[in-house]
Design a protein around this nucleic acid. Sequence first.
DNA 1: ACAGTATTTGGCAATATTGCCAAATAGGCA
DNA 2: TGCCTATTTGGCAATATTGCCAAATACTGT
Lengths: 108, 108
Amino acid sequence: MNNKIDAKYFEMTRISKALAHPTRMFIVDKLNEKKYCVHELTEMIGADTSTVSKHLSVLKNSGIISDEKRGNCVYYNLECTCVLNIFSCVMNVIQTNLQSAIELVDNS
Amino acid sequence: MNNKIDAKYFEMTRISKALAHPTRMFIVDKLNEKKYCVHELTEMIGADTSTVSKHLSVLKNSGIISDEKRGNCVYYNLECTCVLNIFSCVMNVIQTNLQSAIELVDNS
DNA sequence: ACAGTATTTGGCAATATTGCCAAATAGGCA
DNA sequence: TGCCTATTTGGCAATATTGCCAAATACTGT
């Protein structure tokens, strides 16, 4: 795998890396409902504000969400709802695995 | 975020974590063509066999791919093609970001 | 059984991610 | 201006991921 190909796939991991944390998955799920600001999310998540802020920063840098300042608060918005495909994909994987397990039991 | 909710989102990161590496993205992309065995993939990737084997193990444990022994070789198969949605999602994110940048320039 | 090829596993050092605290920055309001 | 709330950033310790080497395991063919 040469450098160019590696760069291509590295670019692609921007999305998967951004989603590779429970808190960030939670945030994406919540932002699919409506816009939330940092302290609202922080309260729901129950971590330090700075921690949540950094998670939001990761999602923003990957291009999945955007921010918008309203007075004292910063509201975050889900830009790419396509990432929600991951959610259904997870269900798909779980079901596929269960199906394999069932067939294994049936054939024994 | 209580333990139960955290467990839910942690479960969901099984997929995103598995895809959060360029080599594993490459493998998924390749397996979408056809089944490949470890030494074929190793040759394409250009890393140590053990390294590739461990990447395959990560993908397998997440349920994305499955393995099948044929004689001396172990062939891997893409079980959940839905993960390919990530690929188009990446393009989507890139385009969305470009669009925002263009609007920013136009309005200045 | 033996040699050769294919793959996995254990171990370890290098690197990356995470989460908290403290401090800095920014806006609202008296 | 000064105080309060909201958010971000720097720093650091704890943890997780990664990649190579060496060794173990498994199968093929002689």
